[in-house]
Amino acid sequence: MNILIWHVHGAYTEAFVQGAHRYLLPTLPEGGPWGGGRAGRDWPANAVERTPDQLADDDVDVVVLQRPDELELARSWLGRTPGRDVPAVYLEHNTPGGPAATTRHPVADRDDLLLVHVTAFNDLMWDSGTTATTVVEHGVPDPGHRWTGELPAAVAVINEPLRRGRVTGTDLLPLLAGPAGIDVFGMGTSGLGTALGTPSVRGMGDQPQQRMHAELARRRVYVHTARWTSLGLSLIEAMMLGMPVAVLATTEAARAVPPDAGVLATDPDLLRRGIAELAA
């Protein structure tokens, strides 16, 4: 099949394009949110960049929508209306951004789209009205069991921790760091410890995925602090690397993390003690 999908969530798209289909990734000269293409990623050859002009001539079998504006972009670029002239699904990566249980989904009450959630928790919390929904759990390519734990530190992956604040549990990092500290990888993490006023939280910056996996695996324990998220793909990657984990037991994490994988709690003090025990 020819599948039109925008490169929105890097780790998700990384896994998605490993399949046996042909993936059409819109590209624009300026790049940006609507035309990032492959963005230099080392992806299979069946993940191809396509300009809007090329898409108009492509035989697209299905459109995977991930943002409301893509409905109009797809209609304009393809010359076909998603859900009417070409099959379409709307893939929802995120938990509701408004009130937890009452936020209406942007494609609620539609009979021309299938709304796909990446976790059962998301499906439960979004108000989708009469739109048909299903759950296709997201995953990652297996990075291999690589954990050594040679560095006596905890580690987390949080993109834009200062901007996202309490959503990603950034405020919990100083409490959880302990004597060994927490190394935090991801976009916008440089200078994180200074911003939080604690040297025990060390911002490591953004790194290519393969290099980051190698660095994660050298630390003793992976820490997942998100209060409100679908399910962090970096958490899945850490468990597949063989790392013990300390996880805030919110959203889908309470189901996805088995008890023997580490410590799972909503009490930050229990997490702090668990991290210290695992690091030791």
Rank of each mutant, 00 (worst) to 15 (best):
Arg146Pro: 07
Leu151Cys: 00
Pro152Ala: 02
Val155Tyr: 01
Val157Met: 02
Ile158Trp: 01
Ile158Gln: 02
Arg164Asn: 14
Thr170Ser: 03
Pro174Trp: 01
Leu176Lys: 01
Pro179Met: 05
Ile182Lys: 04
Met187His: 11
Gly188Cys: 10
Gly188Val: 09
Thr189His: 08
Leu192Ala: 08
Gly193Gln: 08
Gly193Asp: 04
Thr194Leu: 13
Leu196Met: 10
Pro199Asp: 11
Val201Leu: 05
Arg202Trp: 07
Gly203Cys: 09
Met204Ser: 06
Gly205Met: 09
Gln207Arg: 15
Pro208Leu: 05
Gln210Arg: 15
Arg211Thr: 14
His213Gln: 14
Glu215Thr: 12
Glu215Pro: 10
Leu216Gln: 01
Ala217Ile: 12
Tyr222Leu: 08
His224Ile: 00
Thr225Asn: 02
Thr229Val: 14
Gly232Val: 00
Gly232Gln: 12
Leu233Thr: 03
Leu233Asn: 05
Met239Thr: 11
Met239Ile: 11
Met240Glu: 14
Gly242Gln: 08
Gly242Asp: 09
Gly242Leu: 11
Met243Thr: 03
Pro244Lys: 08
Pro244Ile: 01
Ala246Tyr: 10
Val247Asp: 09
Ala249Pro: 06
Thr251Phe: 09
Ala253Thr: 05
Ala253Phe: 04
Arg255Asp: 11
Ala256Asp: 02
Ala256Asn: 00
Pro259Ile: 08
Pro259Asn: 10
Asp260Trp: 07
Asp260Lys: 01
Asp260Ala: 10
Gly262Lys: 03
Leu264Gly: 03
Leu264Gln: 02
Leu264Ala: 00
Thr266Pro: 00
Thr266His: 02
Asp267Glu: 15
